[in-house]
């Protein structure tokens, strides 16, 4: 078992959502710039929000689970 250092607790969460966030942002930028995702279309706009929601949804899950493991 490891000691509960920053390397064990919060660094993986931060790395995951910064490195993953860069990939995600690159993807969002390319699909918007290439007009594959057209923000002027209502259905595509909904997909834009679903994609953003998914990123923060998983960030929320990992933050909650880390907090719960350390405090409950």
């Amino acid at each position: 078992m490891h000691e509960l250092t920053f390397f064990r607790t919060w660094l993986p969460v931060i790395y995951l959502y910064v490195a993953g966030g860069i990939i995600f942002l690159a993807g969002m930028t390319i699909i918007v710039k290439s007009k594959s995702l057209k923000l002027d279309r209502p259905m595509h706009k909904r997909w834009f929000y679903v994609l953003l929601f998914g990123y923060f949804y998983y960030l929320g899950i990992h933050t909650f689970l880390t907090y719960a493991a350390l405090n409950f």
Binding site: G21, G27, M28, G54, Y55, Y57
Partner: peptide, 12 residues
């Protein structure tokens, strides 16, 4: 950890 690539997949 699969969500990061979803924009590439869904609209690419």
């Amino acid at each position: 950890n699969d969500w990061f690539f979803l924009p590439f997949f869904l609209f690419g």
